[in-house]
Design a protein around this nucleic acid. Sequence first.
DNA 1: ATATATGAGATATTAAATATCTTATTTATC
DNA 2: GATAAATAAGATATTTAATATCTCATATAT
Lengths: 146, 146
Amino acid sequence: MRLTRAGEYAVRCMIYLSHKGVGVLVSKQEIAERADIPTHFLAKIAQDLARAHLIEIRQGPKGGYSLLKDPAEVSLLEVVEVMIGEIYLNDCVGRPETCPASKRCAVHKVWEDARDQLRETLAGVSFAQLSEKESCIPVFPVHKKG
Amino acid sequence: MRLTRAGEYAVRCMIYLSHKGVGVLVSKQEIAERADIPTHFLAKIAQDLARAHLIEIRQGPKGGYSLLKDPAEVSLLEVVEVMIGEIYLNDCVGRPETCPASKRCAVHKVWEDARDQLRETLAGVSFAQLSEKESCIPVFPVHKKG
DNA sequence: ATATATGAGATATTAAATATCTTATTTATC
DNA sequence: GATAAATAAGATATTTAATATCTCATATAT
């Protein structure tokens, strides 16, 4: 019951892009290095984020990724669920058809409440908020030696 | 980010035993059939529950499992965490040493809050409450044909 | 045209969850 | 005590998901 690496990497990628601002093109290499994400894995994650219209991908020389939406309009929940699908905590919540009693089941109700609460918490945090504050992603540009 | 089968099965087993009451011996077969748990898997789960002093295991003929603690004193969180370990939702919460920034990290803080909230919700529900109400586990004894 | 940078899908690799099997141990009953 | 019944404990598949990487294709600045 933990967030996957893909989810964690997607969040880091989005924070890094939020620091840069909407529409600012950043190379895959730069993001991978600064946010500590395996390059090829980042490529896959970026595809998911692009499909969800959160970022735009630019190919070719000087290509890279850029933020499509205002970070104030993007929640932590949104990014996480793009990567891992809708959170439901227990199978009986996500797939009620697997449990005939779910409508009347006391256990089901607890998990449903817990799920709703968790999703609300994550929905209440925007990438604007996250990028304003300190996080595990370095804020200031790192200059190469020489 | 979902509860494992082992966790779900443990909850079902505990509800079934809660219906019976503290100290009432119930055979593994009966629990497996009524709570719809693969027999051998139940054996493994029962070992974990016994190690956590939630149930007692009796070997030999007329052996089986019985509840050790008052169901009012056992929370959903306790049973779930016996099976899957402490819930932490994100690696950076469970293993802060993997993220040097965790103390100051805004993302970390959100996950920590979400984790605390989830654990509180699950801690607030006892097996007495769960077994009083309808659930996915049948309450009344089923008599064999003939 | 060429070189650069990423896309998209395929293919390992690793780890975890799930399920089952085998041998050993406990205990009620005769 | 011997026997049979019931579970223990650990080992061993099996399956599924997560993680990571590779290859060929595509887009684009110069």
